[in-house]
């Protein structure tokens, strides 16, 4: 029972982080129909900014995460303005390659500034919590709670505020949104900011139980892509459910099958599912 609980907790933690990253990715896809390959690099930059704020400037953990969210959000907005916007009418292959260019630049940039070393990020919540006779590391509970709060907040923002509903309107129908006076530029910028900020928060939450290094975004972004393909590109609930599926699959496969191959699980799952259902799990109709 204890073991099972640990596996569930582990799955929830992973699922929360993957879900947050996938959420940003799916939001951007919904607006621009660009698979943003540079999203993983934004996640990585988020971890670095939070880490540097904490270790070099002695900033409080939460302030560091908020700072990282702002920095990465602005970075994402810049990438929209400077790269994706000029390419909006180009053939679909071009913006994918441009996204790869951003990814390469950010990774090399971080490596040039802070080096390629693996770093460990400190956390004020390194303790262990007892609930109902079960023990859990505080940081993991924090990740789950943080992800939950963010998802609820994002949901309320998208459904209950006018600003949020402009994002949904534009994802549903670009021309229609423009017709009723929604400013496409503003909405794109806002979406990119949210997506970058979500990635940075996910990185800041996850970094203390992982490590901070320039290639840390690779696996996470690829799993996030698996998730949004599974959940349907552009679908918000799909990203959360997909994140949990991959999180649990990894946690349980890592224990019952082999820790050696646990990173393969997500990709094999994708290969199997897409072989059977090329349109993804939760999408309706043909693409």
């Amino acid at each position: 029972m204890e073991l099972f609980f640990q596996l569930v907790l582990n799955g929830l933690t992973l699922g929360s982080v993957y879900g947050l990253v996938a959420l940003g990715l799916t939001l951007v896809y919904g607006i621009l129909h660009v698979p943003n390959f540079s999203h993983g690099a934004l996640y990585m930059v988020g971890a670095y900014v939070a880490f540097i704020l904490m270790s070099n400037y002695g900033v409080n953990y939460w302030v560091a995460i908020a700072g990282a969210a702002v920095v990465v959000g602005v970075l994402a907005m810049l990438s929209e303005r400077l790269v994706f916007h000029p390419l909006r009418d180009a053939p679909p292959i071009h913006d994918k390659i441009a996204a790869i260019g951003i990814l390469l630049f950010l990774e090399a940039g971080v490596m040039a500034i802070w080096g390629a070393d693996f770093r460990r990020m400190p956390t004020p919540y390194s303790g262990i919590v007892d609930i109902f006779g079960l023990t859990a590391p505080a940081q993991r509970l924090l990740i789950i709670a943080g992800a939950f709060v963010l998802v609820v907040a994002l949901h309320l923002f998208l459904k209950k505020t006018i600003l949020g509903s402009t994002i949904i309107a534009m994802a549903q129908n670009r021309e229609g949104a423009a017709l009723v006076g929604i400013n496409a530029t503003k909405v794109s910028l806002l979406t990119f900011f949210i997506s970058g900020a979500l990635a940075a928060v996910a990185a800041g939450l996850f970094a203390p139980i992982n490590l901070v290094y320039p290639a840390m975004g690779h696996l996470v972004i690829m799993k996030a892509f698996v998730i949004i393909v599974l959940g349907g590109m552009g679908s918000i609930p799909g990203a959360i459910i997909g994140g949990l599926i991959i999180g649990f699959a990894e946690s349980f496969a890592g224990f019952y099958i082999s820790t050696h191959y646990k990173d393969l699980v997500a990709f094999l799952l994708l290969v199997v599912i897409l072989s059977v259902r090329p349109e993804g799990l939760f999408t309706k109709g043909v693409r």
Binding site: F37, L264, F267
Partner: peptide, 28 residues
């Protein structure tokens, strides 16, 4: 045969994952 049933972004993402699977298999 499996991946080319997918179009555009899906094909790119799928092959990205295939590349990674090959890398992981070689490494492990």
């Amino acid at each position: 045969v499996v991946s080319l049933r997918l179009k555009e972004h899906f094909f790119a993402i799928f092959t990205l994952c295939v590349g990674f699977i090959i890398y992981l298999i070689i490494e492990k």
